[in-house]
Design a protein around this nucleic acid. Structure first.
Lengths: 66, 66
DNA sequence: GAACAATGTCAACTATATATGACAAAAAGA
DNA sequence: TCTTTTTGTCATATATAGTTGACATTGTTC
């Protein structure tokens, strides 16, 4: 799991708005949030920048604590 | 620019050896080191793990200091 | 300087990230 | 309740990440 949804909600925007900001389709954001695939590095970086955070925070070893 | 080459040399292995460890072709490593394309998140994570570092260190805002 | 390892690069192929359009269901607001 | 926004999901299409095989070049090491 990644923390895109969590940070998007914190910023208070919809999947559609985030998609526009980073220049992809809304469906792409939806699939990423639901871990349905494997985004490119560029997109990950855009997401981190748009959400005011960084790669590690969004994508590095974000298993929920067991 | 990313810091894959730098960390690979630090670990002391060839592009070929690193490619085998992360399960891609040698050319893929070569292209990434030379910024010829945009790897997937999964591959970035494998690289970071194999090189004993993390996403931010390898890929986050690694412009050479100006 | 011959032999070998490591790297850069090309062309052709396959797999998959991402786009587009559409529809239904859930959530939020009036 | 009705309306609108947001989210999940499907199917088809396109762009590009990643593969495979090959060859030339640049080190190393003997």
């Amino acid at each position: 799991m990644n923390r895109v949804r969590e940070y998007r909600k914190q910023v208070g925007i919809s999947q559609f708005a985030l998609a526009e900001k980073v220049g992809v389709a809304r469906q792409t954001i939806n699939l990423i949030e639901n871990d349905k695939y494997n985004p490119s590095l560029k997109l990950c970086i855009s997401l981190a920048e748009e959400l005011g955070t960084d790669l590690n925070t969004l994508f590095w070893k974000v298993d929920e604590e067991s």
